[in-house]
């Protein structure tokens, strides 16, 4: 049963390599996309932090997105 799972009736190489390639490509793609998102979140949060106190207050009051990104960023560190 187990050996059959690996050999796949002599098609093992093709079956496993196609599943493995798909899994690998999907994983790399996921990690890269996530990394870009985190990078942008970080830069965005930093830019808000660097603003003067008044500007920051105005932006956080007006923009839900800005406050959400900032709070999620602060949570993550």
């Amino acid at each position: 049963m187990i050996s059959n799972l690996f050999s796949m009736g002599n098609y093992g190489f093709f079956v496993w390599s196609s599943f493995f390639t798909t899994l690998l490509v999907c994983a790399i793609f996921y990690i890269r996309t996530r990394k870009t998102l985190k990078k942008y979140e970080k830069e965005f949060a930093k830019e808000i932090e660097d603003l003067s106190v008044e500007q920051k207050k105005v932006i956080l009051e007006n923009s839900k997105i800005a406050s959400q990104v900032l709070s999620s960023y602060n949570k993550s560190i």
């Binding site: 870009t36 998102l37 942008y40 965005f44 830019e47």
Partner: peptide, 14 residues
């Protein structure tokens, strides 16, 4: 990806 794009635009507006 969509979230990234939104943040990108927000950043530009900032």
């Amino acid at each position: 990806k969509y979230k990234t794009e939104i943040i990108r635009i927000k950043k530009k507006n900032l």
